[in-house]
Amino acid sequence: MLSSNLLAGKVALVTGASRGIGLAIVKRFALEGASVYMNSRSEGSIDELAKQISADFSADVQPLYFDVTDSNAVQKAVWSVAKKSGRLDVLVNNAGIMRDAMIAMSSDSLIRDNMAVNFEGSFYCSRIAARIMMKQSYGSIINLSSIIGTVGVGGHSAYAASKSAVIGMSHAMAKELAPKGVRVNVLAPGFIETDLTENIKSERRKSVIDQIMMGRAGTPNDVANVALFLASDLSQYVSNQVIGVDGCMVT
């Protein structure tokens, strides 16, 4: 893949970056010249991965360990990026979980877990990143929602609620931060081949893909390419948008 250096000189933080969409975004940003902090929860778990990506893309990619549901840890970690690199230009709130169940079987803890990681985690990271970006009068926050958060899917009420919450939060943040030069947008992936979807049975998988007019599941790179657009100055007049990355999924 060719680089256009769209993110040269930019500093980015991607949460939940050890695999899937997060990892694809880290690699895409690194290829485009950004300094990237890739987040994971487990201390030491992505040290080697970060080194490998740095070498592969001749980029500055560093691991940053914190749990997005721990607001104190989030504040310290995000602030450390600004202290170390002097700025933070792009935040991608990608860390997420999908705990699905029929509504009558959705336990209290299932509801809380979905909300804690998908919504609260995104809020905590955005809250401190916004303060840094406002001081710079520059920044792009990219929040990962889901097609399930925009149209709903049976059996995913709690997950859908958490991803809809991300959209509501993003609309409000976009309006508050636009006068300060900070953009906030949402990506709503459809059916993407990741760890979250690998255990879906083949029959169900076929029926989902039948709903995708492009006839195939998406890849993490499909999402990373749109994240690149939102992170770069190509989208400098774009904020408060929810962009579906779903291959024209009919729902």
Partner: peptide
């Protein structure tokens, strides 16, 4: 919010929420 930013910059600190 501008005040918070000014205080943080003036005293080189990070205020908790």
């Amino acid at each position: 919010m501008s005040l918070v930013a000014a205080l943080e910059e003036t005293f080189d600190i990070m205020l908790d929420t």
